[in-house]
Simulated assay, not measured.
Amino acid sequence: MKNDTDASTLIDGQRAALAKLACGVASPGSLAVLCGPPGTGKTRVLACLAAGQIRGGRSCACMRLADWLARADDVDALPDVVVADDAHDVDAPALGQLLAAAGRRRPGAAVVFGGEGRLLTLVSRDRAVERMVTLRATLHPFSAAETSRLLEPLLPRVADGPEFADVARTIHEIAAGIPRAALKLGELAAVVADSRSDGSLSVADVEQIHRRLLLQAA
């Protein structure tokens, strides 16, 4: 896998979210929100956004919202674009606290909040914050085709064979379309395939890996 700030490795839905967020933070003082279930790639998209802003000549940093709050009193230290991940892990007033700090900066800092579904609830609880939102982007679980594309570089020898479609479909179904879970299964499946001289992998192998993971988690 390539590094986490390489946007070329993103799947279509992630690229669309990245493009929307880039538009959403184009103006100083703007606010964009990225939501999605755990494991759908929010942190990767935010990292790609931050890297793109830096390449474009703007100062930008990405960290957890709780870590940003520890720095909120030092307004001059805030970058042009503040990317705050795990924004669902705080209380509603914390969103306004960071936005107030961003607004005191001159020019005002653009802010991106990223988090799980609870983030939308937190935003809706503060009407002032809700009115500031200029753009919302959402990440969804992957389609079967997207999961297949995600797995191809992990399982290159399998991808060239007739079993790949069934293997990819099985991983997709077990992972329920969540890329983080699909990657974990795919990485373990790659170990099995690489241990064999012919690089083979079957649906039964994937199901056995899944059963072992369930036993480990029990």
Rank of each mutant, 00 (worst) to 15 (best):
D85H: 00
K20Q: 08
G57T: 12
G39Y: 01
A159P: 08
A176Q: 11
P141R: 05
A168L: 09
P28F: 07
L10Q: 03
P179C: 05
R125M: 12
G36M: 04
L65D: 07
A204P: 03
C62W: 00
A101R: 01
S148M: 10
H172G: 03
D91V: 13
L183M: 05
P93V: 03
V158P: 03
D74I: 11
R127C: 05
P179A: 06
A109K: 01
P38R: 12
G41Q: 00
L18H: 00
D74E: 09
L65F: 00
E207M: 12
D166W: 11
V133L: 10
D198G: 12
V81H: 01
T170M: 10
Q216D: 07
R212M: 10
R58C: 10
L215Q: 12
A217N: 15
A7K: 06
A7H: 10
D85Y: 02
C23K: 06
L10A: 02
A128M: 04
D85R: 00
A168D: 10
L21W: 00
C62Y: 05
R196T: 05
E163R: 07
L65P: 00
P38Q: 15
A204C: 09
S202I: 03
A51R: 01
R212C: 13
V192R: 01
V82H: 03
A218N: 04
R157H: 12
L65M: 13
V167Q: 01
V25R: 07
I174F: 01
R44L: 09
L151E: 06
V206P: 02
L201R: 03
L120A: 14
A217I: 12
R136V: 05
G115W: 04
M1P: 14
A101S: 15
A101I: 02
A22E: 13
R125D: 04
A204K: 13
T170S: 08
E146W: 04
Q97S: 14
A92N: 05
A100N: 06
A16S: 13
H172W: 08
D76M: 09
A16Y: 00
A66S: 14
Q53L: 01
D205K: 11
W68C: 00
D205G: 08
D76F: 09
A84W: 00
L119W: 01
V82F: 03
G36W: 02
N3Q: 11
V123C: 00
P107C: 15
C35W: 01
T9V: 08
M63K: 13
D86H: 10
